[in-house]
C-alpha cells in the first residue's frame, strides 16, 4: 500500500481538502464579485497574494489588488480611506487606533490571521549559533536598553576563538516604514534606538540576499524569508536555554521574537461587509487559508484561535 507522507496531516484530511479543492467551482456558482483592495505590510505580501490567488480560484469574479509598502502605510491608508483591508505585521498603536476612531467614530476590527517570527540571520557558514537577547541589543542598538554592559560591534567579541569571520559586524535591516523594523525595535532593542550604520533595505528578501552573500553580515528578517543561504540564530533565554525558531516554538510563543500577523478591517458596527471582503476573510479563517499560511512559509494559528467570522 502506498502511504501518504504528509507527516503532519493524516490521509483523511488530504482527501477532504482534495474534495474541497475540486468542489471549489461549485462555490463559485454564488456570484461573488468585486474589487478587493488591500494596502499594508510587505512582510505579509506573499501571504496576501497567495490568499488572493486562492480567492480568485474560488470566486473568479473577485479582483484582488495589493499594495505593499510596510505596515505603517496600513493605518494611514485605512484612515485616509484608500483601503478597507489593512494587513499589518504588528498591532496598531494606540495613536493610530485613536486617529481611526476620530475619523470614523468606531474602532477598526482586528483579526489575527497567522503567526510569524523575526529571526536573526547570519551567513550559512558562520560558526555563531545563538545569542542572548541582551547581546543582540548590544549589537543593533546605541541605547542598550535591554541591559547589556557594552556595545558589541566586532565578530572577535562574539567569537573569541575563531578568526573567521573577522572585523566589523555588517548590519542589515529593514526600512523605517516596515512593521518588521518597528517590532524588532520594540522586542529586541527594548524600545531603544537603532545604530545609524545599519543598511536599510526596502524589502526583506534584499536583507536575506545581502546576508547570504557576506560572511561578516548579520541581519533580521521575517521567518518566512529564511533560505538556505543564511542560517537563523537561536536566542538564549534567561534560563540559559537556546530556543531555535521552529514552527512549534513560534506557534506556542516560546520563541521570544514571535508575533501575530493581523488584518484590520474598516467596518462600521452593525454594517455588513461587502461580499468580496467577506469571502476573503472566510477564506483566511478556513483550513485552506491556514494551509496557505504554511505554504507561504509562515506558521498557522493554533487551532483554537481560528475565530469564525461574526
Amino acid at each position: 500500500m502506498k502511504r501518504c507522507i504528509r507527516p503532519d496531516r493524516p490521509c483523511a484530511h488530504l482527501a477532504l481538502w482534495l474534495l474541497l479543492w475540486l468542489a471549489a467551482p461549485a462555490w463559485a456558482a454564488a456570484p461573488v464579485s468585486g474589487t478587493l483592495g488591500a494596502t499594508g505590510s510587505d512582510t505579509m505580501a506573499s501571504l496576501v497574494l497567495r490568499w488572493g490567488e486562492a480567492l480568485t480560484a474560488r470566486h473568479p469574479g473577485i479582483n484582488v489588488q495589493f499594495q505593499a509598502g510596510g505596515s505603517s502605510i496600513a493605518p494611514s491608508a485605512l484612515v485616509a480611506g484608500t483601503t478597507r483591508l489593512a494587513p499589518m505585521s504588528r498591532p496598531m498603536s494606540p495613536e493610530e487606533r485613536e486617529q481611526f476612531q476620530r475619523r470614523y467614530g468606531y474602532a477598526p476590527v482586528e483579526l489575527r490571521v497567522a503567526r510569524d517570527a523575526l529571526v536573526v540571520v547570519v551567513h550559512r557558514h558562520n560558526p555563531l549559533k545563538a545569542l542572548t537577547l541582551s547581546t543582540l541589543d548590544a549589537i543593533f542598538s546605541t541605547t542598550r536598553a535591554c541591559g547589556a554592559p557594552a556595545p558589541v560591534s566586532r565578530w572577535e567579541e562574539l567569537l573569541p576563538t575563531g578568526d573567521w569571520p573577522y572585523g566589523r559586524i555588517a548590519l542589515h535591516g529593514r526600512n523605517l516604514a516596515s512593521g518588521t523594523h518597528d517590532l524588532f525595535r520594540q522586542r529586541a532593542l527594548c524600545g531603544g534606538h537603532f545604530r545609524d550604520d545599519i543598511s536599510e533595505y526596502p524589502g526583506s528578501a534584499a536583507v536575506v540576499a545581502a546576508v547570504g552573500e557576506s560572511p561578516r553580515a548579520m541581519g533580521y528578517t521575517g521567518y518566512h524569508h529564511l533560505t538556505p543561504m543564511v542560517q537563523p540564530l537561536g536566542l538564549i533565554d534567561a534560563a540559559g536555554e537556546t530556543i531555535m525558531p521552529t514552527p512549534e516554538t513560534i506557534q506556542n510563543g516560546e520563541y521570544p521574537l514571535s508575533r501575530y500577523l493581523y488584518l484590520y478591517v474598516n467596518v462600521a458596527p452593525g454594517e455588513a461587509l461587502p461580499p468580496a471582503e467577506r469571502a476573503f476573510i472566510e477564506l483566511i479563517m478556513s483550513e485552506q487559508g491556514q494551509r496557505i499560511v504554511r505554504a507561504a512559509g509562515f506558521v498557522p494559528l493554533p487551532a483554537d484561535e481560528l475565530e469564525p467570522l461574526s
Binding site: 509598502g69 502605510i73 494611514s76 484612515v79 526600512n175 523605517l176 550604520d197 545599519i198 543598511s199
Partner: peptide
C-alpha cells in the same frame, strides 16, 4: 540607505530621492 555622514567611499549613503520613494507612501 543608511543615513550616515561619512567621507569613506566604502560606506553607504541615503539620498533624498530614495528617502522620498520609500517613505512618502507611508507618511500621512
Amino acid at each position: 540607505n543608511a543615513a550616515l555622514i561619512s567621507l569613506s567611499p566604502f560606506e553607504g549613503l541615503r539620498s533624498f530621492s530614495a528617502a522620498i520613494a520609500i517613505e512618502l507612501p507611508e507618511a500621512p
